[in-house]
Design a protein around this nucleic acid. Structure first.
Lengths: 339, 339
DNA sequence: CTGTTAGCGCATTCAT
DNA sequence: ATGAATGCGCTAACAG
């Protein structure tokens, strides 16, 4: 049982060499860059490859080079509340763009919630893949510490302790500030915020930006509540906020998914958007555009982040010694009708 | 550069054997089933493995056995309109469940729209993976014919010509019938349907079921329009249907995503749901629950389908000679407030 | 520029 | 039950 089809026995490099009238070494060189190969041999090998439909055996190549030509994409368990649908789609789209045209193959690793991290760390260190992209790391999942110091690992989203870890992220502090400033510029003066869970740096940073913007404006940042990055959580948080602070006239909601819940809460209370309460969301991964009226939100360049992470990794495989630097992309506001 | 981490040189089977005081052969046997190995040797090998943190080199094993221990998951390009977010999430969730606890690794293959299928077919036949799950095949994408006859390939959704292809699907004909019957049972007598694109068997089958149900009831199935499986398409289709048939009192919408658009169209026309027009959707992958009022819909067991496909494949890897039979799961109605 | 030689790490005959 | 020997298909020194 060879591969997907039994009937067709795949041709080997040996057969290619024989058909081309050269040695295995020359055939191999012709395939890998064609350095130190005469044009005649090169052509002969290429012809033989086309004729035989030769495809190099990845396992053999991996064994010989100690490089697998594949990278891992670690995604959290789909049951996880944080895996909003658009998140996964954005990740796949980002990695898809970076890998198009590449020979690099993608291994999907599901990071099950209860699963001991040792298993995944061991897998990654075992050399089954050349590198890894870690998405949506949680504090306390241990992956951060298990992988610290590992070159060829890129996190999506800043880890809690970034020493020895390279990551790609959006500037969430600036994003939080931008969201708040947008409301301030619209004349709102009594702002509150629905945050994400505090075990994720994205949530912390967005709140941080919000707080700073209000401080700069000389306003209090006392209306804060955790919506857990879910729609239901956002709805509940909005109710709690308005119970405590009925005078709020603007809300920074740390994710669009939560904003959907917030909107429901406002509707239930008979508050109009944006006349009574203006809203700015965060993400722009699909939920914002689906809302009516369209949500004003801060764009989270997830696709670009993942794309960049994949390119960094691929670059390192090719020996491009990109040092383990970090990349932080700027956020920007996407206008809607909720401010 | 060995794997994800450079510093740690992975131990080999040789070292394990040496530490355990046995030969490579015995160590190998102890690892793979432990047949014909004395309890003493078995224990010694296991101890050595634990001590050294040994993980078998997949490349070497693949080379020796001609089995990679991995299967491919072919998904359509994320820009594709058919890849609704919940679809991808369902696929990942299904495959995640089946692979949990397994050593089988998952290789993600993006099926780019313009890309020649020969490339993907060649990859699959080259033996880089032991099997493949093909999701959401379109008529004319060529993948169907390229892979026909290949054992170890399972399609999600019935292909157009199923000869030589094993697949897992939901009974879409029964689903379409169920949706229509639900409306009939509720006393609706003038039914229309918004279908998916006719280059997908799911769309064709659902329409088929709708048509049969109406024929059985002695009613005409003349109000039919294509919504392309998108929200905007569904909205437009609903408008066209109601322009032509203002007397419609029930709509079978072939996907929940389209139902969202249909609902907007009805709202625009001042039609109440379900008082004036009742709606039944299809999928129940997230969009239905998110609608207010909750959409009555036919559940599409996508997660179970993918899970089953993965298990079938894994079973075949282990030599479990499951013949290339097909699996068709029954649909069922999920009550909502739109009928 | 080219062929010869020697492994990469593992599973698997075949003897014992 | 165990060990020695062989090969999976490829790349990389090395000598020519």
């Amino acid at each position: 049982m060879i591969g997907v089809d039994v009937t067709h026995q795949a041709p080997t490099l040996d057969e290619v060499a024989r058909e081309a009238g050269v040695s295995r070494s020359t055939a191999s060189r012709a395939i890998n860059g064609g350095d130190r190969v005469s044009p005649a041999s090169q052509a002969a090998v290429e012809a033989a490859i086309a004729h035989l439909g030769f495809t190099p055996n990845r396992a053999a190549r991996a064994l010989a080079t100690s490089q697998t030509g594949s990278i891992a994409l670690v995604i959290p368990e789909p049951d996880d509340l944080f895996v909003s649908d658009p998140f996964l789609l954005g990740v796949v789209r980002g990695v898809s763009g970076a890998l198009a045209g590449t020979q690099t193959q993608l291994v999907l690793l599901i990071n099950h919630a209860g699963q001991p991290v040792g298993q995944m760390a061991r897998y990654l260190r075992a050399g089954h893949v050349d590198g890894a992209i870690i998405t949506s790391p949680h504090r306390g999942d241990g992956l951060e510490d298990a992988l610290r110091g590992s070159r060829s690992v890129v996190f999506i989203g800043r880890p809690f302790r970034s020493e020895g870890i390279s990551y790609v992220d959006v500037d969430n502090v600036e994003g939080g500030r931008l969201a708040a400033q947008t409301l301030l510029d619209a004349g709102r003066r009594r702002l509150g915020t629905v945050t994400g869970p505090t075990d994720m740096t994205a949530a912390i940073d967005r709140l941080d930006g919000f707080t700073r913007a209000l401080a700069d404006a000389g306003l209090p940042a006392d209306a804060v509540d955790d919506g857990g990055f879910t729609a239901a959580g956002g709805e509940a948080a909005a109710h709690r906020l308005l119970d405590r602070h009925p005078d709020l006239d603007g809300l920074v909601v740390a994710s669009d998914v939560m904003a959907v819940g917030v909107r429901h809460a406002l509707e239930d209370r008979g508050l109009r958007v944006p006349e009574d309460v203006a809203i700015v969301g965060f993400d722009n991964l699909g939920a914002a555009a689906a809302m009516t009226p369209r949500l004003t939100t801060v764009h989270n360049p997830l696709v670009e982040m993942v794309d960049a992470a994949a390119r960094i990794l691929i670059g390192r495989l090719d020996g491009g010694g990109t040092p383990g630097e970090n990349l932080v992309l700027p956020p920007h506001l996407v206008p809607g009708s909720t401010v």
